[in-house]
Design a protein around this nucleic acid. Sequence first.
DNA 1: AACCGCAACAACCGCAAAGGG
DNA 2: TCCCTTTGCGGTTGTTGCGGT
Length: 306
Amino acid sequence: MGCRSCDKPKMNYRKGLWSPEEDQRLRDYILKHGLGCWSAVPAKAGLQRNGKSCRLRWINYLRPGLKRGMFSQEEEDVVINLQAKLGNKWSQIAMHLPGRTDNEVKNYWNSYLKKRVMQLGSNSGSNPASKNASPELLTSMSATTELIMTSGGGGGGSTATSTHDHDANISSSGAISATEPFVDHQHEQHHQQQARNYVFADWMPTAAAAAPGPESYSMSAHWPASTASSGNVTPSHGAFVGDQMSGSSYAALQHPHQHHHHQSAVTVAGAHASAGGMVAGGGYFDLLNMGDIYGGFSTTNDDLLF
DNA sequence: AACCGCAACAACCGCAAAGGG
DNA sequence: TCCCTTTGCGGTTGTTGCGGT
């Protein structure tokens, strides 16, 4: 594990949000060299970040196969169920949600599910996960849990990284079910939140990102298969493709929970439809296609090689 | 129009485990 | 076996936008 060759002078690392340029540098580097010693990545990639930050950025946003926004009802149930079973073992929970990162699951829990579960728990008893669910849901949850418990990697013991397991799930089961992403009556209250447009930094395009930005990348050079797969992907903004793959915030113009907002979700799907990465249902990447797109290399976290 | 509070997400921080020398 | 470094994980903070007043 030690990486003596990665010795580097201490330096002032940049912090804060990642710019598209930084993302591209990191992406380019990993495309060229694969994953290795993270501590060496910043210097070699020309980034003023520490390795930890690079790793996090890659895992959470740049890594292919990620799915962003829109926790389906099933995903929510898995999170609630597993959280009740495992506690805050986000990486283990994320293992069972292909394309989701532990950070995303954690954030979703902390910002939304926890309150909901606590509400339900205080209203009606000690097993919020169960109380919360409809009979049909419980059935599916049981099935899910059983699958989880018998799948070999679940719960305790597994030392596989979440990323690894994500990919295992992706490759073994293909696209996660996006069952009824828009039909979610339980969240009606939450839905009252309007869709929000995220503009996290000056460099981030707004909804008008359709207009090519000056920093447009030639993403096809980096992800050549994406064009082949989707047919006519000519991203007007490189970050857009990044979002197709990773859900980076550049194009996350809609509220992540907007699947609760039918109108907004349709907007998202429509907005992205031309890029081919969206699947009907709004916002989910077709992970099978992602497999095709990135089939040339392993997407496992530990041994990504190109 | 301005201010405030809230919600959501991205990223950082600290700790522990793992592995090499 | 110990020490050092890297990696992974979970908790927490910071930033941003929106709605309400």
